[in-house]
Computed example of a mutant assay.
Amino acid sequence: MRTRSRYRVLLPVILTLTTVFTVGTATAETTPPSPPGDAFYVPPSPLPNGSPGDVVRWRQINVGFPRPAVKAWQVMYLSTDALGQPDVVTGTVMVPQGADPAKAPIASFAAGTEGPAFRCAPSNMIAIGALYEQPGVNDLLNSGFAVALTDYEGYRPTSRTTYVTGQSEGHAVIDVVRAASRLTETGLSDKAKVVFRGYSQGGGAAMWAGQQQPTYAPELNLVGIAAGGVPADLVQVALSLDGHKGFGLLAYSLIGLDNAYPDLKLDSYLTDTGRTEFAKLQQTSCTLELLLNYKDKKLQDYTTSSPVLTPPWLARVGENKLGGTPPKVPVFEYHATGDDLVDYSQAAALHATYCKAGANITWKTYQTDHITLVYTGNADVLQFLKDRIAGTPATSNC
């Protein structure tokens, strides 16, 4: 943690010294520079006109890990929120040096839970070399993939992230691929083969992107999806977290849904203590704090009544339940049988739902816990995605 703190202190200086430019039809010489430092993340007002995936601003960066050598850019791009309205999202695009970007496949890497505080944004973690899923990212880069990694909606100096809101997250996962190919400096092709990959929060986001892609982004050459630890049914996930080690994830989920849907009015359910603690959680917590500082807490510790099973909340949660429109491409879905954070049974139910609908699903279980599978599933994920790029037929094991 001391090392991470030191990097956080240095990050604004590093980013301020980085030369950055707003993308557009004008040349770099005539385009005003993007805001330096953390101001890069502040959305312009009003939002510019354009289509989902259009780049609003960008800057080239040095990422905080030595291998593999990459060229990297932070981007802000247009996307679509959970209510179907235009928004902007930030993210990171990485292209391995030595690869021909015009021929490189693109992996949209949907990050797992990083936490609600601005310092936890995946692009901040990448910049300082602190992304806990870096081994999975490196696997893809070493295999010749360009990697586009979204921050999801809401990361800015005063963050209002929309955690576990699949309707928003799926769009962000898709649109970062569009942004990666539209940023001329990357050299990536808009005809490139594309895969979505994610675990935990990222597994849900990748699966949502897969469901949305045929109608939202039919031009993408999507060939496969790998999604693990998927929170497919938020009600079932929530019930297994209250009063247990993952309560901080439950609290963050309520905050994320409330940020996405102002009609939910989370504040009206909170006690004074709840308002104080939830505000603190949103402003200061990354994954470690969520798991340690809120372990075994209960909703009744912070609320006058639980919002989880009320009609307004159930309606919005229902809008973010996976399974309604199975992906059209092969899917590798995997889960830990001893998952202690994302209920196993609801993921198995999603697998059964997709199979019944005729989707091409490779389903695999691992005898381990949630966090361990972040790493031990990487080899199978990489092989599945490489096979999809190679054109090897996927055989469903439904």
Rank of each mutant, 00 (worst) to 15 (best):
V9P: 00
L11F: 05
P12L: 12
P12S: 07
V20N: 07
T22W: 06
A26K: 06
A26Y: 01
A26G: 01
T27M: 08
E29I: 13
P43S: 03
P48C: 05
N62E: 06
R67H: 12
K71G: 01
W73L: 04
Y77A: 01
G84I: 13
T90V: 03
M94P: 05
P96N: 11
P101K: 11
A107S: 14
T113P: 08
F118P: 09
C120I: 11
P122Y: 01
G129F: 10
D139Y: 12
F145L: 10
Y155S: 02
Q167V: 12
H171K: 07
A172S: 15
V176W: 01
R178K: 12
A179G: 10
K193G: 12
Y199Q: 09
A206I: 06
Q211M: 08
P214A: 04
T215H: 11
I225M: 02
A227M: 03
S253E: 12
L254N: 08
G274M: 06
G274L: 07
T284E: 14
L292I: 15
P307Q: 04
L309Y: 12
L314F: 02
G324S: 02
K328Y: 00
G338S: 05
A347M: 04
A348D: 11
K364Y: 05
T368V: 14
V374I: 13
T376A: 02
N378Y: 13
F384V: 07
D387R: 14
D387K: 14
R388T: 08
T392D: 00
P393F: 09
S396M: 07
